[in-house]
Design a protein around this nucleic acid. Structure first.
Length: 591
RNA sequence: CGGGAUGUGGCGCAGCCUGGGUAGCGCACCUGAAUGGGGUUCAGGGGGUCGCUGGUUCAAAUCCAGUCAUCCCGACCA
């Protein structure tokens, strides 16, 4: 690169990013205190370190420092997607409503979908996701099995008008997502596409230096029949995960299953009505009758889509899982009936509702068969049945898994106790099947001459969320501690007495050496006192800090401090650049 | 959308309720001097239609009404 002696060379990396940046001319406003709006640590630190600023609820500016890290996440993702055979495209953010009407999601997606009209009064949406657009594209352009398999991805801004955006980049309304879509000729091929993306995601999050788990997930509103979520483990996570420390089992709590313990009642015992005054709730009923809560059959009245009454039966020691119940109701929304509604429909106060002879549909948890018999409401105030037996005393319309797994329930794979932990969902892979291809008529001509719907998969990663999750997982009380792969710069270079020409010159020389080796450096060239520079360096959390001072130069040395473990070593000036370069390399390759 | 709260210089807050009358503190910012290894000190300085609109009043940051915005708790999701 050409240089001239009067102006400093601007060295760029292969991506066009500046390798050696000067703090004084960089927009990196650090804050002593976080704004009151920031609640969780990653949000506070990302604002304090000058990475992001809020513009409106759930809508953020990325400042230069934040953008550098975001670009790193982006490059890691792009690299792995390309490695696993996906092709990058860029689809429009603004989409005509027709496509959404065709897929049925114009009605289904709800108020989260940002809708607007153009000057001709035509309906448009700002894309929250791109199944419609991509399927439309592929159905036009990929007509034959010879064009398949196909996996297309993009990295682009989405908008979802979340009811409650929160936690900074964690749940924004406008956010940047990598979304990929695969198209295959049959199920086996679709499985291969799915597995490839699963592996790509493992690589991506590993390279980002995150502690994460891939967990079985519920498919949610996107639809489809099989999916995994990639969860970054963090106490502030919005999701709960059931986790087996002994084997590989991990699932979103919404999805997790278990043959949890319970105390079976007698087989073929006689149905007996017994007086249970004021025993409305499981704990008092269990105490009154001297039975374990698990042998009580809890009857909960729901209204499917607020209309059809449904009685859900679960053992008394577990909570109902509304997601599972919703699936059992074919996607209709279960709303718990109010005590007044329940009394009106069932004719008895809540707590004494009975499945025996009930005129409404009954959905029961699988465990009721293992239970053999149990205590159930008798349909009469202050009375319960003993030995109520599923099938014999009350028929059920569906027998399915309905409960929320509890801490230490046995793992469905190995039987060891499960642990429940919290996580941040940074990625999600779905096997979609033919949901969109069938709705939008996306078919291909097979080798047999038949038109068949494409088998689809879709795969998302939230970039800002990944960045926030990394911050959430890597910090201490002084600030951020970036994994080398995501750090905005790899080395913080701190000349402590910038007004001393020897110190300033030594820093310039080291900056030049480092950047010529391709190391990313932030030079704190501000005329500030050492304490302030140290504080800012800690807050920014660049993994390596090189300090040059009158003191260190007297020993011909540069002081090196690692942000993570705070270990300090000194390097002779002559070899400092190369040593730092080597360190960066080793810290980049994940262990 | 339901429940709870908050809006006062760039950031954090006090003042309001409980007497309606000059708008205050810390940090940041600017100038000067000293200082120079963990948010330095002193002196001086700039910056606010107190979210907005309307009302009550001689007089409103303060009382009343409406409205907007932001945050927290629930359903949704990358």
């Amino acid at each position: 690169m050409a240089s001239n002696c009067s102006s400093p060379t601007v060295r760029l990396d292969p991506h066009g990013e500046v390798l050696g940046q000067r703090f004084s001319s960089y927009l990196a406003p650090t804050l002593k205190e976080a704004p009151a709006e920031a609640e969780i640590i990653s949000h506070k630190l990302m604002i304090r370190a000058g990475l992001i600023r809020r513009l409106a609820a759930g809508i953020y500016n990325y400042l230069p420092m934040g953008l550098r890290s975001l670009r790193k996440v982006e490059r890691i993702i792009r690299g792995e997607m390309n490695r696993f055979g996906a092709r990058e495209v860029l689809l429009p953010a603004v989409q005509p409503a027709e496509l959404w009407k065709e897929s049925g999601r114009w009605e289904k997606y709800g108020p989260e979908l940002l809708r607007f009209k153009d000057r001709h009064d035509r309906d448009f949406v700002f894309g929250p996701t791109h199944e419609e657009v991509i399927t439309d594209l592929v159905k036009r352009e990929a007509r034959s099995f010879r064009d398949l398999p196909l996996n297309l991805f993009q990295i682009q801004t989405k908008f979802r008008d979340e009811i409650r955006p929160r936690f900074g980049l964690m749940r924004g309304r406008e956010f940047i997502m990598k979304d990929a879509y695969s198209f295959d000729v049959d199920d086996a091929a679709a499985d291969r596409s799915y597995k490839a993306m699963y592996q790509a995601y493992q690589n991506i999050f590993r390279r980002c230096g995150l502690k994460f788990a891939a967990v079985e997930a519920h498919s949610g509103a996107i639809g489809g029949n099989y999916s995994h979520e990639f969860m970054v483990l963090a106490d502030s996570g919005e999701d709960a995960i059931a986790f087996c420390p002994a084997c590989s089992y991990a699932a979103n709590l919404e999805k997790a299953t278990s043959r949890y313990p319970l105390t079976p009642g007698p087989k073929d015992g006689e149905l007996i009505k017994t007086h249970t005054p004021n025993c409305r709730h499981v704990p008092e009923l269990a105490k009154f009758l001297g039975v374990p809560p698990s042998s009580i059959i809890k009857s909960l009245l729901f209204l499917a889509d607020r209309t059809e009454p449904i009685l859900a039966l679960i053992p008394g020691h577990r909570e109902i899982n509304l997601v599972k119940l919703k699936d059992a109701l074919d996607g209709r929304e279960p709303v718990l009936a109010s005590p007044e509604e329940a009394e009106k429909i069932m004719g008895v106060p809540m707590g004494f509702v009975t499945p025996v002879g009930a005129k409404v549909k009954i959905v029961a948890d699988l465990a009721l068969e293992r239970l053999q018999s149990g205590v159930a409401g008798a349909g009469e105030k202050d009375y319960h049945y003993l030995n109520a037996q599923i099938h014999r005393d009350f028929p059920v319309h569906a027998l399915v898994d309905l409960v929320v797994v509890a801490d230490e329930d046995p793992c469905p794979q190995c039987g060891q106790p499960l642990a429940i932990r919290r996580g941040i969902e940074v990625g999600h892979v779905f096997k979609l099947g033919v949901k969109y291809s069938a709705a939008l008529g996306a078919t291909f001509m097979g080798s047999d001459g038949q038109l068949t719907p494409l088998i689809m998969g879709c795969y998302g990663i939230g970039l800002g969320r990944t960045l926030a999750a990394a911050a959430e997982q890597n910090h201490d009380r002084d600030g951020l501690i970036w994994p080398m792969a995501l750090a905005p710069f790899q080395v913080a270079l701190l000349p402590l007495q910038i007004q001393n020409p020897d110190v300033a010159q030594a820093a310039e020389t080291l900056l030049d050496e480092l950047t010529s080796l391709g190391v990313e450096v932030l030079l704190d060239d501000r005329d500030e006192r050492p304490g302030l520079k140290f504080k800012d360096a800690d807050l920014l959390g660049l993994p390596l800090r090189a300090t040059i001072s009158e003191k260190s130069l007297a020993n011909g040395a540069v002081e090196l401090k690692k942000r993570l473990d705070r270990t300090v070593t000194t390097l002779p000036v002559a070899v400092a650049a190369q040593e730092l370069k080597n360190l960066v390399e080793t810290m980049l390759s994940p262990i």
